[in-house]
Design a protein around this nucleic acid. Structure first.
Lengths: 237, 237
DNA sequence: AGGTAACATTTGTATAGTTGTATAGGAAAT
DNA sequence: ATTTCCTATACAACTATACAAATGTTACCT
C-alpha cells in the first residue's frame, strides 16, 4: 500500500482552500510557520507542498513577503489596436501602470529607423510596469519622437496612459503598423520587476504605432511574463 | 548555484547608470524610496546596494539631503609649482575656494623658522576650504609674513587666489622650496568641513613657497580628504 | 531684507516577520 | 543497504513598519 505522503495531502488541502475561496486570488496565505503548526508538521513539509503548488502555477512566493495565490493567466489580444487599459477592463480585471523611469535621450539606430527619424535625434523614453489586479504583467518601453511630442513625459507622468497623452498632441487614434514577437529568458532586473524567477520565459513584442496618416508616433517594446499572459492574435474587433 | 543577490544586481545597475552618465558626478540620485519602487524592491534592499557603492567610494549620502554621486578621486600633482586653480581646471573640474578665517597674529616658532622670520614676528593667516565641483577637497592654511605683504588679507578676500594676491605685491612667480606629506585622522572640525566621517584618513602636506630669489613667501599647510584626492609627485611640467 | 517657524523630504536606525538555503539526522518503506 | 520522507536547527536575504535626525523649502512676520 503506497500511502500518500503528508506533503501531498497538505497540498490538496490548501488547493481545496483556494478553490473554496477561503484565500482570495492575489491574497496572502498564512506564513509557512503558521501553516506548519496548523497541520502539525515541520515547516519543510509545508514548503514541499507549496513547492508543488507553485510548480503548478497555483501560488507564487516572494521572499520576505509571503506566499500569494496566483491570478489566472491573462488573455492579451494583439490586434491593430492595442490598448492596455481596455484589454484588461474587458476581462474584468483592474489595470494599473507604474512608472519606472522617464528620460530624454538620443535615439539608437534601431529606434530612429522605426520612427523614421534622423539618427541621433532626440526621443522621449517611458519605462514602466503594467499590473493586473496588483500583479505584474509586463515591462514596457515606449519611445516617442521628441520634436513632435515635446513635453509628453509630463503628460505621461500625470495620467500614465499613452492613449491619453497622445490625444493631448492631437493624435486621436493610432494603430499598429508592425508587430514582432519573440521569446526570451528573463534577466535579473526583469525578473525582479515581474516577480518571476531569473531565467523564466518572457514574451517580447516589438511594435510601431502610427497615426491615421501612417506616420509612426510610438516605438514600443514589451516584455510579458510568459507564465501570466497568453497573447492572442487575430479576431479583430 | 549561488544566485546573485538582488541588492548586488541593483548596485550593478546603478553603477552602470553612473558610468553611462545618466547621473552626473556630484549630482543627486533619486531618493531611496524612489529607487525602491523603480527596482520593485524594499527600500532596505536599495540601501544595501547603496552601502556597497558607498564603500567603494562611488556615492556618498547625506542624511536629509540625498545620495550623491561621488566625484572621481582627484589627481593632485605636487610639483615645484602648486596651483590649486590650475590643477583642477586642467582636469575639467570647477574649483572654488571658501574663506573660513582671515587673521593677523604672531608667528609660532615653527612658522617663523619656515619663513625665516624673527620669532614672534607678525604673520597674516588665511584659513580656507577648497572645493571641486562643490565637493570639499581640502582644508588649507596659508601664512604670509606681515611686514612684506601688508594688506594681503584684503587682496585674498577679493580674489581668494594666492597666486593673484602675491602678484599684487610683485611676486610674479613662486615655487616650492620644501614639501612634507604625512597621514592623519580627521578631527571633528576637519570632518565637518570636509564632509567626511570623523576619523577618516587625511593627507596633510606642509610646504614652503619661495620667490625666484629663494626667499620664502608663504608657509602652507593643507589637509586633503584622503578618499577624494590622490597626490601625485614627479612628472613636472 | 532678513530671520524664524512650520512643513515636507530624505537618510539613518531599530525591530520584527517571512521566505530561501544549507546541513544533519532519524524513521520507515523498498 | 539504500532511498524516500520527514524533522530539527541555523542562518541568510528580503520585506514591512515605525520612528529619529538632518536637510531643504516655503510662508510669514518684523
Amino acid at each position: 500500500m503506497a500511502r500518500t505522503p503528508v506533503w501531498k495531502s497538505i497540498a490538496i488541502a490548501l488547493t481545496d482552500d483556494i478553490a473554496q475561496g477561503r484565500y482570495e486570488t492575489g491574497g496572502k496565505l498564512p506564513a509557512e510557520a503558521q501553516l506548519a503548526t496548523r497541520f502539525g508538521v515541520n515547516r519543510h513539509t509545508v514548503r514541499r507542498a507549496l513547492a508543488e503548488m507553485s510548480e503548478q502555477g497555483l501560488v507564487h512566493s516572494r521572499r520576505g513577503a509571503g506566499v500569494f495565490v496566483a491570478a489566472k493567466p491573462t488573455d492579451y489580444p494583439i490586434g491593430r489596436r492595442v490598448r492596455f487599459h481596455q484589454n484588461l477592463t474587458r476581462e474584468g480585471r483592474s489595470p494599473a501602470k507604474q512608472i519606472l523611469t522617464l528620460e530624454t535621450r538620443a535615439a539608437s539606430a534601431r529606434e530612429a529607423k522605426a520612427l523614421q527619424l534622423d539618427p541621433g535625434a532626440e526621443v522621449h523614453v517611458y519605462d514602466g510596469l503594467s499590473l493586473a489586479d496588483g500583479q505584474p504583467i509586463a515591462l514596457f518601453q515606449s519611445i516617442f519622437p521628441a520634436d513632435r511630442f515635446p513635453g509628453i513625459l509630463d503628460a505621461l507622468q500625470e495620467q500614465r496612459s499613452v492613449t491619453a497623452a497622445l490625444q493631448k498632441f492631437g493624435v486621436g487614434d493610432y494603430t499598429r503598423i508592425e508587430t514582432r514577437i519573440t521569446a526570451k529568458l528573463a534577466t535579473a532586473t526583469q525578473a525582479l520587476h515581474l516577480r518571476i524567477a531569473e531565467g523564466s520565459p518572457i514574451l517580447r513584442t516589438t511594435g510601431v504605432n502610427g497615426d491615421p496618416q501612417g506616420r509612426p508616433v510610438e516605438f514600443g517594446r514589451t516584455w510579458f511574463a510568459g507564465d501570466r499572459v497568453t497573447l492572442t492574435v487575430g479576431g479583430e474587433s
